[in-house]
């Protein structure tokens, strides 16, 4: 999550679009990103919801972003289901330099509680 939260921040900065990154881990926060709420609802439904919630959120994403947006979102979720498993099952560490540079960022989005590697 650390790597892609940083890519999210960098992409939002480069493209000058609004972003509140706390929404990654706190669903009471509006991500500000266009269609951000619909995308977060969709991710939550696909990974933790039932078929009914998946259908509702799928239609919402398709309504806001079109069929190609829906397929892209499904692809990204799928890819990170793969990558998360690879990272966790191989004990992929975050470098000490990265940890030092990202202390404030990690506190902002509250992700140190996921650091089970103890790195």
């Amino acid at each position: 999550m650390l790597a892609h939260s940083q890519m999210l921040r960098a992409s939002a900065q480069v493209t000058t679009i609004p972003l509140d990154p706390r929404a990654i881990t706190d669903r009471s926060v509006d991500p500000l990103l266009p269609a951000g709420e619909a995308l977060l609802d969709f991710v939550d439904a696909v990974l933790t919801g039932d078929e009914a919630s998946q259908e509702v959120t799928r239609e919402a994403v398709a309504g806001e972003l079109g069929p190609s947006g829906l397929v892209d979102a499904a692809g990204v979720i799928a890819n990170f289901e793969m990558m998360n498993r690879i990272a966790d099952a191989t004990g992929m560490p975050v470098g000490k330099g990265t940890l030092k540079r990202t202390a404030e960022w990690r506190e902002l989005i509250g992700i140190d509680r996921f650091n089970h590697l103890g790195s």
Binding site: M1, L2, A3, H4, S5, M7, L8, S11, A12, T15, I17, L19, P21, A23, I24, T25, P31, L33, P34, A35, G36, L39, L40, F42, V43, D44, L47, T48, L65, G66, P67, S68, G69, L70, V71, D72, A73, V76, I77, N79, F80, E81, N84, A87, D88, M92, P93, V94, I111, D112, F114, N115, H116, L117
Partner: peptide, 23 residues
């Protein structure tokens, strides 16, 4: 593409948050 890069990264980061993947 179908999503902007920032939208893709929001989806990636949220997926990783639900999976509790720190990396």
């Amino acid at each position: 593409g179908g999503l902007s890069r920032a939208q893709m990264e929001l989806v990636a980061a949220r997926t990783s948050a639900i999976n509790e993947c720190f990396y």
